[in-house]
Every structure is written in C-alpha cells, then in structure tokens.
Nucleic acid binder design. Sequence first.
DNA 1: TTCAAATTCCCATAAAAAGGGGATGGATAA
DNA 2: TTATCCATCCCCTTTTTATGGGAATTTGAA
Lengths: 206, 206
Amino acid sequence: MRKTQVFIVDDHYMVIEGIRSLLQQELQIDFCGHASTAASCLSFLSKQLPDVILMDINLPDQSGIDLCRQVHLQYPQVFILGLSTFGQYSFVEKMMAAGASGYLLKNAGQQEIKQAIETVVKGKQYLSHDAAITLRNTHHADLPVLTRREKEVLELIADGSTNGEIAERLFIAVTTVDTHRKNLLLKLNAKNTAALIKIAMENNLI
Amino acid sequence: MRKTQVFIVDDHYMVIEGIRSLLQQELQIDFCGHASTAASCLSFLSKQLPDVILMDINLPDQSGIDLCRQVHLQYPQVFILGLSTFGQYSFVEKMMAAGASGYLLKNAGQQEIKQAIETVVKGKQYLSHDAAITLRNTHHADLPVLTRREKEVLELIADGSTNGEIAERLFIAVTTVDTHRKNLLLKLNAKNTAALIKIAMENNLI
DNA sequence: TTCAAATTCCCATAAAAAGGGGATGGATAA
DNA sequence: TTATCCATCCCCTTTTTATGGGAATTTGAA
C-alpha cells in the first residue's frame, strides 16, 4: 500500500519539526516536505502533489484561509487540514468554508494527528475534539456576523475617522455611516464608541 | 561535564515535540520534561529544578509573564527563556521585566535554540534576532507614561462609561475627567476616543 | 422569481466629546 | 526652595455621537 504523502505549511520551525517528529513513527505516513510561506507552498505544489496538507492559518505572506481556497480550487484532489493555535470559531469555520477537510489544534498529540490524516484521505471530515467543542461552546450565537460594509466602517472608526470622513472615503452619505454605526453598536452590544472598539478588538474584528 | 537540563512549558504538544526533537541531537542538552499549564510547571519545579525553562507566553491557566515572575522569585537560579509566536514589543519587554533571561520566537531553528540555551546558562541575555529587531524598531521611546489616574480613567472609558459616570465612580468632578481625557488623547496621540482605545489596546494599556 | 438581508438615504433631538482657554493645591525631586 | 508634575476644578463653543424613528433600492440565495 502506498504511503500517504503529507506536506506541512507553517511559519514556525518548531511546529514543523514537532509534526515531522510525531509522524516519523507512523509507517503509513510519509512526510514529503514543508513550506513556511504561501508562495513556497504553491511553488512546491506545481512540482509535486501530496495527499494531505497541514496548513497553518497564520502565514507571513498571506492568510492560510486564502491559500486554502486557492489550493483547493487548483488541486481539488489534495486534502487540507487546517492548523492553528486556538479554536476560534470564525477561523475554524472560514477554513472549512475555504475547502479544508478538517481542522487540528496545535495541542493535538500523535494519535490525533494520525487519525486526522487517515480520516481526511478517506474523503471524510475531521474536526479536532477541541475545535469541535469550540464550534459548539464558544460565542457562536453571541458573536454577531458583521457585513462587509459594517466591517469597513468599523475599521475606519477605529482609525479615528469621524462619520464625515468615513462618508467621504466610502462615497456614501453621512446618514448612512450613522446607520452602520447604529447597527454596529447594536450587534456588538456596545454602549458607545469606546466600548465598541474594545469589544471589536477583543474579538479580533479589527 | 554535566548536561544542561531543559524544561518546556507550552500548551501545544507539537511545539514541545518540535523542540524535543531538535534538542535530541544536542549532546550537551538534556530534555528533562514538559508541562502544558502553569500549575503543572510549578508542581514539577517543587520536585526537580532544571537549568533552563523554555516558557510560552500563552498558557491556559495563567499568563506566561506571571508564571515567569513567580518562578524567577521562587527559583532565581533557574534561567527562563520566553517563547512566543510573535515578537510584539510589549510582550518581549514584559517577559524580560518579569525575570526572563532571553526570548525566542517559535520560528527559531535548531542552531538558534541551542545558542539561546547556551547563552543564558552562562548568565547572559539572549534575544532572538527577530525579537531584537522588534525591540529596536517598534515604538519604544514613543510610548508615553500614563499616570495612575489616567489609567483608571482609560479603563473606565474603554468599558463604555461616560464622563459623568467616570466622575461618579472616581469621586471627582466631570471637568476633571475631561482634563484626564484630553491628556490621554494628547499622550497617545489619538484623534478621538475610538483611536484612543485602539492605540491603548494595541499597546496593552488596557 | 421571490424574499430576506444588506445598503443606502433622510429627519430631528438629546447627549457626549473635543478643543480652547485658565487656575489651584500638593507632592516631590533637584 | 524653586520648578515640575499630578490631580483637581471651572468656563465656553463647536463638533461629533447617540437615539429614535422611517423608507427606498440593491443584491444574493433559495
């Protein structure tokens, strides 16, 4: 039986080495290389295709989510396992939406990594236990979904722009900015701008 | 010559395994154990003292900075190397202030880890190249010193309190709060409340 | 195609913050 | 002991936000 080819994309050498070390003991799995940037990952894929890619969400040149989407479109036969430090709901969800077959947290042990790889090569989905719990427990319902426009306005508010300035930059009326602002306060349950920015930053919305 | 005993505190198994794997090839270094929480780290130390601890900043039960301070006070003979994903200035600085002898980023390779350990056991300081650059580049001198009162006011602003509410809670006049607020905007070079909160949070003032 | 959500715009009033002054007592460090 | 910083307080004006409505158009997904 052919060994499963595994490729790793992560900008932390310690993590790459950790996974490599853990997978070395698995006879059915072959570690075929690693990349620390999205660019070098794509470059590798143009020459050789692994069966599974373990992909970190935080990469230096671009978001792992974007890379995931790109790789999934270009090489749909490759299974992608998301990889990150924390099980923040939005990240897990976005990674899955971008075409990942599963998600692993970096505190996963040898057994879990092995099982995840074996599961996704069969075409099934694998969610890290903790990630699954996160998806269930955490502020799923609590964390509101901001629209594209609301996020834009939020960013500009955080930068210190007044409604007038925001309106100018986005080519909309001041009253519209006002409305978005109202909705932001409502959605994030903030009393005023100060609380809004604090909550937004605590939830990585900025 | 006695081997250098190294202990790791990190809640990510992959990182622990990575470091262990990298250090295995070093004959002068002995990996003597690991912990994934501050509590189990302290429990280990009560029985056995390593020469160097590689300590992550993000731990599940408490901040690595607090743990660092505690360990440094209780076991001053143990050298601590801070460990984290990013080289954010305030974190590096706080870790050093808490008694760490050095700082490593998780993208460090085998040579760098080895050199860091060798450097700190000699009682010298070791800063990861990237961390050192961070310390130099980022707003070091720029960061203003906030007074006790200003910090209190800042926190209350961030929580969404109005000047009136802040005045009530601190038993001072609204006009005084106004003055503190003006000074905060000035010191942090913020255009308005939104920018103030963002800057304050980015610099860990809240 | 149809329906819900997103985006856009408007009015009016009340509340809060920003910006500009100036002033006083107290502590502290040089 | 003088100078500096902190904390406190006050005035006034203008700008910006908050709050509470209502309503028309896109747009995207089912």
